[in-house]
Write a protein that binds this DNA or RNA. Structure first.
Lengths: 203, 203, 203, 203
DNA sequence: AATGAATGAGAGTTCATTCAT
DNA sequence: AATGAATGAACTCTCATTCAT
């Protein structure tokens, strides 16, 4: 029936509205400082209405984080699959990571700014995160095996490069890069940073 | 007067006790989950007593953040002043940054994980942060000028290396390094990461 | 019209299903802990559906209590009508009272444990209760007139014997008999109690 | 210090006020239908104030029940200790039970109208109840051994007589005796009822 | 200087009930 | 006839904060 489908679509749209409002608020004020009342007010519904769509406050966060990871992995995968050169793949992957962080700062915040185990990963976050990590790890491994980074353990390279891009995303999103540079050409700066952080290692 | 001095000393001691208790609790339970009651209980005073020493809860946080920055800059300065070799200085500085992040995770969180302007920087944080940045910047500049990092703009090197150590601190503190490595020798791993991230650049 | 009748029958069947579900739940969880949602879920309908059949939650309770009384009186009547010997009739009546209390504890609670006037007796409860009392009174009167209970006013015997069985029902239902006896043969105990409470009186 | 004592007295007075208000409300409206707000309103305090004196709502009930039992046992004990004749003792005890039920209907309701195990007897209720029961049991046993009640098991006599007085208290408190008798001399009626319910048994 | 008492505000959550469909 | 959506009111309980003592 058309009605049935319509219903489902409406329901999904409502969930979306709630999630979007919550996403903004969580990122802006932190999970604890956001109240169900606040979310409800943001979408101009009654607090009780939220409970028709989500079991409780925690579930909203959980779903959001899940979404974030899913979307993130998606982009990472797409970007990396086609490229044969591991170094080029790495560059793309890094740019993807950064772009995700900058374009979806709320998701990024929700995904990475709370401790890993704190909220015990109710959804598939864990799975997605691991998947994504494995792709990344493979990528680095190829580079290391090619000798591009010189004498270095895969683990060291992995966490160093991850830290690099992760930290950069963080510094940008928290306004620290802007605050401390006079550089006018932001994109140029980013490129230079990446070039530097992926510079070849001593043989 | 002796009495006067005594009074002030007592007062300072009490402030200290409160701050210490608060810091502990913040680190253990997160800022939002610490109540004034909780702090008061920890030092076995009544909640009302706290208000003789601090205007409100926010002030406690504010002072702690301020202290965090001060202490952080202090260490950074001490470590770097004596060492003539800029690269060695950089290594020390990085280790200091990391150690601070790991030993005082809540300070670190307070200082860096909240958006720059969000918490309205009541204290001198801003000044300290700038001071610290300048020292760091100088340090990198020397390295670049020495040609150690090869062809790279100072800004790019600055933010790349900062990102590196900042991101690493973050990944460790949020449990992500632990979660994704089987490495048993954590210290070894950290050393390798630093060596890699400060590897010389192509000339 | 056949349709009309069919309609009514369906409606009645639905009311029945609701009442039965409600009764079960009331007995299991207590009146206050049963929600309309709960009742609806039990019959796999939507909460809103209940309101086509009952004005509100109170009405469900009211109807149940009414039914309880009706059924109670019915049993009392049936049991007593056929038996000519008043004492034997009394025994049967007492056993009926007790059985009702034990088999339908929530009905019993609804009927007797709330103050008489408190719940404003929307239905015919009052009438039924009175009817039932009159039968009982008659019964005792005959026994007293026969001299079975010795020298005693009808009123005294009436309230004493009523108290007896009522109190016993109460003590059993609230778990107090079980809690305070080691007797294994519960039925035997009940029989002995009745025999004792209906023992003949001094001439 | 005087101050200290004063404080404690005030505190105790406040607890008393809360308990009294709660007692009335619980008895009148049932535990579930009484809100902390309601209790607070009754004593013209803020709801939050209650939590300074009691951990939560359940604790209030628990303390009240405890008090009820303590007081009840006290009277039972006092009454029965001095009297050597077991039958006379029984009469006194029964009158005490009834008087307690009528004079403190709220306590009585709280103590006996909720299921035994339902609220899992956090306080000493259980102990008091058992103590009281044992005294009563002893009393009946003596009567039975004296042959006063004729051929009957102690258990049967115990629960029969307890039921008697318990049921009577219940019927009176719920307005059912008043509703169903025209008797003008209420005290006379009670005496007759007791005389009847404690009539000697056949040898 | 320190505290016990008190409270207003607000948290998450549930419920009986209504109404458009 | 039945339902999904929605809500206002209520619940228990916690918190930061003030104030008389």
């Amino acid at each position: 029936m058309g009605t049935r489908k319509r219903r489902e679509k409406d329901r999904e749209a409502m969930r979306r509205r709630i999630l979007d409002a919550a996403k903004q608020l969580f990122a802006k004020q932190g999970f604890d400082n956001v109240s169900m009342r606040g979310i409800a007010a943001a979408i101009e519904y009654s607090p009780a209405a939220l409970y028709r769509y989500f079991k409780n406050k925690r579930e909203i966060l959980s779903v959001l984080r899940d979404e974030g990871f899913k979307r993130f992995v998606q982009t990472q995968k797409e970007r990396s699959e086609a490229i044969p050169d591991p170094l080029e793949r790495l560059r793309l992957s890094g740019r993807g990571y950064l772009r995700f962080a900058l374009e979806e700062p709320e998701y990024f915040h929700l995904m990475f700014s709370t401790s890993c185990q704190e909220v015990d990963m109710e959804g598939d976050c864990d799975g997605y995160a691991r998947k994504s990590f494995e792709i990344f790890y493979q990528n680095i491994q190829e580079c290391v095996e090619n000798g591009y980074f010189g004498q270095v353990s895969v683990d060291a390279a992995v966490f160093s490069i991850w830290s690099n891009v992760h930290g950069l995303a963080h510094l940008i999103n928290s306004g620290r890069v802007e605050a401390f540079t006079d550089s006018l050409d932001f994109d140029r700066l980013l490129k230079d940073i990446q070039a530097f952080s992926l510079r070849p290692g001593a043989r």
